[in-house]
C-alpha cells in the first residue's frame, strides 16, 4: 500500500508516532522490520540533554495515556550517534522529531542530524515542557522562525506537528506552511490531569500532562478535517488510531498518512496492530471499489 507524503515514499501509510520508542536505536530498528510500517518518527530530541520529570511520568487510564515525561533525551549530538548506528539497517524512512526552543537551536540540530534523517518532524506542540513544545508552538511568530530555520538547513521533507491545545491551530499550521513546512502532523496530545483517589493527589509529578489514545481520536478527526479545508499541504493524522476504521476516518477527513502511538503500547508494543490496520484498509478499499488509498483522502468533504 504505497503512499507518498511530502516526497517521502512510504511502503505503507502507517507511521510509528513520536515518543513510543524512547531513545533506543535498537527499538527503532526492530519496528522498522515490520512490512506494514511505512516510516518511524523518533522520540523528540532537544538541543541540550534533558532528564525529564520525576516519576510518575505516565498514567495508564485504560482508554489512553496521560504523560508528562518532560522530553527526556540525550541531546541531539549523542542522539545523532545512536541513530547513525542503526540508520544503515533501517528499511523505512527515519523521521527525526526535534524540539527546538528557537530558530538558532533548530538550525543547528537539523544541520547536524541531516545525515541520519530522511525527514524532520518539528515538535511545537508538547503540552508539558517548559520553554519547548507548546510554549513555543502557541506563538505564531516563533513557529514561523523555527520552521524557517529548519527549512533553510535541510532539503529533506519537514513536517510540523501541531497542538490541539490552542484555538488558533489553523494560524499556527499556516505560519508553518508559509515558513516552508511540507506537511502538518495533527495532533499532539491533549492537556489533561489525573488525580489518584487513594492518594488524593495528582499522579503526574508535573501535575498535568498530555492525553493520547482512543479518547482523543474525535479531536484529531475534527482538526484534520478543518486543516484540510484551509491548507494545501498534506496532513498526517495522529491521535487514537487503534484499528483500520480509525485510520480510514482520519483519511476521509483529509489525512494522507496516519501515525500510531498509544495503540502500540496497548498491544504490549506488538506491531501486529500495523498489520491488522493495513489489512483492514486494503479490504475496505476493495469493498468500496477504490483502486488506491489516495482516493480516500478528504472524501468526507463537500466539494
Amino acid at each position: 500500500m504505497k503512499m507518498e507524503v511530502a516526497s517521502l515514499v512510504l511502503r505503507s501509510p502507517l507511521i510509528v508516532a513520536s515518543g513510543v520508542l524512547g531513545s533506543s536505536g535498537s527499538l527503532i530498528k526492530n519496528v522498522s522490520e515490520n512490512p506494514s510500517v511505512g516510516a518511524v518518527v523518533t522520540k523528540t530530541v532537544t538541543y541540550k540533554p534533558r532528564n525529564g520529570y520525576e516519576n510518575p511520568t505516565v498514567v495508564d487510564l485504560g482508554y489512553g495515556f496521560l504523560n508528562a515525561m518532560g522530553l527526556p533525551n540525550p541531546g541531539y549530538l549523542d542522539y545523532k550517534v545512536e541513530l547513525a548506528s542503526i540508520k544503515r539497517d533501517l528499511e523505512v524512512p527515519l523521521i527525526v522529531s526535534i524540539g527546538p526552543s528557537n530558530g538558532e537551536e533548530a538550525g543547528k540540530m537539523v544541520e547536524a542530524l541531516n545525515s541520519v534523517a530522511d525527514g524532520f518532524e518539528v515538535n511545537v506542540s508538547c503540552p508539558h515542557a517548559k520553554n519547548l513544545g507548546l510554549e513555543v508552538g502557541s506563538d505564531v511568530q516563533t513557529v514561523r522562525k523555527i520552521v524557517k530555520a529548519v527549512r533553510e538547513s535541510t532539503g529533506k521533507p519537514v513536517l510540523v506537528k501541531i497542538s490541539p491545545n490552542v484555538t488558533d491551530f489553523v494560524d499556527v499550521a499556516r505560519s508553518a506552511v508559509d515558513a516552508g513546512a511540507d506537511a502538518i502532523t495533527a495532533i499532539n496530545t491533549v492537556r489533561g490531569m489525573a488525580i489518584d483517589v487513594n492518594a488524593m493527589k495528582p499522579v503526574l509529578s508535573n501535575l498535568y500532562g498530555g492525553l493520547s489514545g482512543k479518547a482523543i481520536h474525535p479531536v484529531a478527526v475534527r482538526i484534520v478535517y478543518e486543516l484540510y479545508e484551509k491548507l494545501e499541504v498534506p496532513i498526517v493524522g495522529c491521535g487514537g488510531v487503534y484499528d483500520w476504521k480509525d485510520a480510514v476516518e482520519l483519511m476521509l477527513a483529509g489525512a494522507t498518512a496516519v501515525q500510531i502511538g498509544s495503540a502500540i503500547a496497548y498491544r504490549k508494543m506488538s506491531l501486529n496492530v500495523f498489520n491488522e490496520i493495513e489489512k483492514g484498509i486494503i479490504e475496505y478499499l476493495t469493498t468500496k471499489g477504490f483502486s488506491s488509498i489516495r482516493e480516500l483522502v478528504g472524501l468526507a468533504h463537500n466539494s
Binding site: 536505536g25 505516565v58 495508564d60 502500540i264 503500547a265
Partner: peptide, 17 residues
C-alpha cells in the same frame, strides 16, 4: 524505570531492544 508500561524506552537493553 519511568513509565513501567514498556513505552518510554528508559529501561531498554541494547542491542536486542
Amino acid at each position: 524505570v519511568k513509565c513501567g508500561l514498556g513505552l518510554c524506552g528508559s529501561c531498554v537493553l541494547d542491542p536486542f531492544g
